[in-house]
Amino acid sequence: MERRVKISYVINLLGVLAVFLLFVLLFESRIFGAATQYIKGICTTACYTIIMVASLNLVVGCMGEFSLGHAGFVSVGAYASAIVSGALTGKGLPDLALFLIALLAGGIAAGITGVLVGIPALRLRGDYLAIVTVAFAEIIRVCFCNFSITGGGKTMSGILKLSDFYWCYWIMAACVAVMYLYIRSRFGRTVKAIREDYIAASAAGINVTYYKVLTFTVAAFFAGVGGGIYAHYMTAMIPTNFNFMYSAELLSEVIIGGIGSLTGSIIGAAFLSSLPEMMRQFSQYRMLAYSVVLIIVMIFKPGGIFGNWEFSLVRILHRAEKKGHEKAEGGVQPWKQLERKSRY
């Protein structure tokens, strides 16, 4: 068992590395010519969006609660990390160290906010929780509009441009890996049990509030890290960037990708964050495009494109290996899962 786990870690690491090398090859060979820098930028956008969307999927997919205030955590992370990196510039730290410290600070600040919001809010469920999270994100936004340290309602600018695609790629891979491990861990299973049946979970002795707040905090932490990358990529931001529309955008990416599938979040986030760039000439209609995509996906695939299916390199290799030996036995197929029941 132990050996198998280790091997699967190595395989996955190699997979991530292979994708990375592919990107390096594409960019370094100047295939895109003058557009290289521009496309790199889009890829960086995709990286932080993936982190944000995947973290929201912890709440929506794993915990089964709708949060409409994820932009609140993103903004806490963005501002906290910008303030920290601003304070630490010129202290002789190498850029990467500065960047990582700033992201960590952003994540921790967002995580603390997650605890503070989660403890009162997670007593509620379903629609009620969704409304509370909206309210919370608005509070954060209004606060940031009035704090002098965040530049008030004005743009906070002059943030160091530290978000390099190559770094962001690895940070993104690490974040997604940690979230995946969280979902697959004892904690993740416990939270899933709470989602599946609240009453049975508490009857089995699970401290429901504790595990929900924990998951919410983990999600907030990663949203904060995503926000940190955002801040150091945009280098300037105003609190109104993190309005309700931003939360809704993140949520729709989760839903399109597949509620409960990190694979879906990655694909959904990567696709939808580059979609507006692809449709540059009618960019203001992108919310329209979003809506159309959402409607189409919901009609034909209510659980999202990937449902709760996860891509697994190990499984594919295993299958390929097995095929050589014998026909696969008719076990349970993960994609033939039950239609997800609405939690309301």
Binding site: R189, K192, E196, R340
Partner: peptide, 19 residues
């Protein structure tokens, strides 16, 4: 009944041993 429908039988039992 209140079982956890989207978890496997084994995982359901594991939850029973939670404490």
């Amino acid at each position: 009944r209140h079982i956890f429908p989207q978890m496997t039988v084994e995982e359901n039992l594991e939850m029973g041993a939670f404490t």
